[in-house]
Computed example of a mutant assay.
Amino acid sequence: MTEGEKTRLTAWGHELRSVHNRLREALQVTRTALVKGEATELATRDLLLFCHGFCTALTRHHEGEDRELFPAIGAAHPELRDTLLKLQQDHSMIAHLVAGMQATVERRGSPVELDRHLEGIAAIMESHFRYEERQLLTVLDTLALDANPQEVLGPL
């Protein structure tokens, strides 16, 4: 195996951590916009933009994992199929929470309502990310998957 091939193989673990960190940052920006949104109409429009951007990025990340990454891991590591099923169930739960938040944003719900949605998403998302990293980073460091990282993990 050449150094270039080894770098490509180990990149998936790095890519996953990078995307998770960017989603954590996007969530924090969204929560900051919520606090500011109580004061001005401009900040409220920013909140709508940040919520939409965060929700879209998180959704695309999970859809890519379900479509590309998890089947590749399952094929290479059948012993992880139960873990992958649990992660996909988390994706479904997070999608439900994101849909609830998006509906609240669209009807211009109160900052208290929005904060409640963001708090729920944050808790489940962080638990999910930590579990996923504990269970899959070692596997990702050896996964041979020839695919575009943005299609597999969402926008970097």
Rank of each mutant, 00 (worst) to 15 (best):
T56M: 04
A57D: 15
R60K: 06
H61K: 02
E63I: 11
G64F: 05
G64E: 07
G64V: 03
G64R: 02
E65L: 08
E65S: 02
D66V: 10
E68N: 06
E68T: 03
L69F: 09
L69G: 06
F70T: 14
F70Y: 15
F70G: 10
A72P: 08
I73M: 15
A76G: 12
H77G: 06
P78I: 14
P78M: 15
P78G: 08
E79Y: 11
L80Q: 10
L80D: 06
R81D: 12
D82R: 15
D82A: 15
T83G: 10
T83R: 11
L84A: 11
K86H: 13
L87G: 04
L87N: 01
L87K: 00
L87M: 14
L87R: 02
Q88I: 04
Q89H: 12
Q89M: 14
D90H: 08
M93C: 01
H96T: 08
A99V: 01
A99G: 14
G100E: 15
M101E: 06
M101V: 03
Q102W: 12
A103E: 08
A103V: 09
T104S: 12
R108L: 11
R108S: 10
G109D: 11
V112T: 02
V112A: 09
V112S: 03
E113S: 02
L114R: 08
D115K: 01
R116S: 01
L118R: 01
G120N: 04
A123E: 14
M125G: 06
S127L: 11
